[in-house]
Write a protein that binds this DNA or RNA. Structure first.
Lengths: 203, 203, 203, 203
DNA sequence: TATTAAGCGAGACGGTACGTCCTGTCTTTTC
DNA sequence: GAAAAGACAGGACGTACCGTCTCGCTTAATA
């Protein structure tokens, strides 16, 4: 079970360096964009040696990814979508919030960087899926399942498809900048998609 | 309207070099992936000088983009979605084809590379929007409009949203590799989305 | 007698371009130094096409050399060293003038450039020898021969060696910047060298 | 006393790389000549990165110069001209050796390259003067001083001029290829120059 | 309480690619 | 048919980073 190289001893890892590196990575990607982001710059900004980065992360994308995880620390697992009983209103709240976050210049740069790495690197993509995307999808599905039990959604609805239908359009607009990420857009997407998911005999 | 630098004289441009460079770029991105793609390698493979690339394209992404345009040459503007009268069947045909294309390893690599460049470079994104995305969206909207006239879609449906709802889920799955790009998935997306777009009184 | 390439027709040669190119070369080498001198810059400054330079000169050094010839046009062949009857005084006059010229920043740069080309290119060196150095050496030897006839120099003196002995020290100091090119230095060289060249029984 | 850029840490310098680079530079300049010598080729031949050259040397000429210094390592300071008591014979020995060295194709190329750099670069010229030319001149002057004490040279002879008078003619012939660097030439120069430097009353 | 061994900052190293500049050739257009 | 203009293939420039590799230094666990 040993690595080909002597594995680093995690107990001795400097928490100070770890945080400084992740913070520096997040800052820099926001300042200079993904394509200009370099390990050298991260190390310099963090006051760390390059080797410290190479020792603990397999790629630049992994650093970036961990920087995101650090931000969303505590959120995952505990968080749940709002459930006021009104599915449409709850989803509109969530999509509007998502739209706003994607529009925020503080998050736009780093988010694009992470997406680029995911596009590039299948390993990182799998990691992202497992550790961020799937948990968040489960949270979304949980809310839809609740609505399904309440009879607000068709019983045979594929919840995976439902989540994609609801969230992918926003992502697509953000990615290609093909339209404004407005509250109106969020609302229309929710309204149209939900109409397709209601029980057949619904009123 | 003049450039800040003396612009190259397009009338003297070598068509032979242009084609060789675009072909080399497309080949290489498929072989080594985007992150390993270099201007140097493109020039070498094309038997061209690096300066010839820098003279005519502002960025690596622009080369890649033109390589895509060269492939889809003639398609844009002339093409239209199938219109058998059965909207659902027609859309399933198109989405299945799209899913297949995205699964094809010959297109997966270059497509990811192009998307990365678009994520990175707002200028290229705008160019892409104008020259590829908008025309293709118009074609899709044309088919939906035809269905709208036939009473198969709600009269007040926002066709832009409709297109996003239909096509974004596929793109999202491809991008994050979050599920199989199967014909079943394409069908389910079309069925669910269309149900939400039909006239209220149901035909 | 034909060249491997169709030789240019000298009768059609543009005198205007020739002069502009030589002038531009001379100016530029003074401004930016030899190592930064480029054919492109010469052509641009002269308002000439690069091909015009390549058509008429075999190398950058040849252009530079012709630029020098243009300057000394008319001098060669006609000129002679002063001959007042006092050899020592005459030589001091000449060496002092040479020292001054080598110190002049207008000539220092171009002269170094020419010397560099000569060091580099044996063909150009031979050309230089034939067309500039030998004629000038002959002029100097003529003056020494006159002194020899007058009994001021040893009858068996090798005049080639004599010229080198008189002029090389100055050149060496200039080249290596190993000391001031002063009138005193010129005088001392002449006095010392001449003492060694006088007839044995001389007073 | 600090540099404007963070100076490299000389204690960490790789002696292996240094020697390999200097050796490669010396070899290459002999093989392809100065004008075809490139940093790129030196690095490749030495198995070194280009940055390693740029880190430690300010210019191509400086590399070449150090390559020369490496060759003459140990010679400077310790060496002295032969002193058999017979000045003329000793000088003839030295000049003949110099002439032979300048004729040796192994040294001709590199030597020309170094001279070109010296002509080009005043900073390098000053360095050369200080570290090679002046020490060697001092050695030559030492021999002349010894002769002066013995009464073989005029008491008021300017030894700097004397050295130039003796050695510059050889250099000049080599540089312009204006004549054979023969033993006869060396002898004649020594005989003629020395005759001008002897005490007035002749011993 | 010393010893020791890992992580650490620092940064030199062999490399690759960058984007710029220039070379020498070729072609097009003008005179 | 020479000349201005400038695109072309090619190649070196000097810079920026890559990922690897020592260096001393600090620091936590072991002897």
């Amino acid at each position: 079970m040993s690595q080909n190289r002597t594995a680093p001893d995690a107990t001795r890892r400097s928490e100070r360096s770890r945080r400084a590196i992740l913070a520096a990575a997040f800052e820099l990607v926001g300042e200079v964009g993904y394509s200009k982001l370099s390990i050298e710059a991260i190390a310099a900004r963090a006051g760390a040696g390059k080797q410290t980065i190479y020792r603990w992360w397999p790629s630049k994308g992994a650093v970036l990814f961990d920087a995101f995880l650090m931000l969303s620390e505590g959120e995952t697992g505990t968080a749940a979508l709002p459930d006021t009983g009104d599915l449409e209103a709850d989803l509109k709240t969530v999509l509007r919030a998502t739209a706003e976050e994607l529009s925020d210049p503080r998050y736009d740069g780093p988010m694009r960087a992470l997406n680029i790495e995911i596009l590039n690197d299948p390993v990182l993509a799998a990691d992202y899926l497992q550790r961020l995307d799937l948990p968040m999808k489960e949270i979304k599905k949980e809310r839809l399942r609740s609505a399904q039990c309440a009879g607000d959604l068709a019983a045979d609805l594929d919840l995976d498809v439902a989540v994609d239908l609801l969230f992918a359009p926003l992502l697509s607009r953000w990615m290609f900048r093909s339209g404004p990420l407005s509250a109106e857009f969020a609302d229309t997407v929710v309204e149209t998609a939900l109409r397709g998911m209601r029980p057949a005999g619904g009123g």
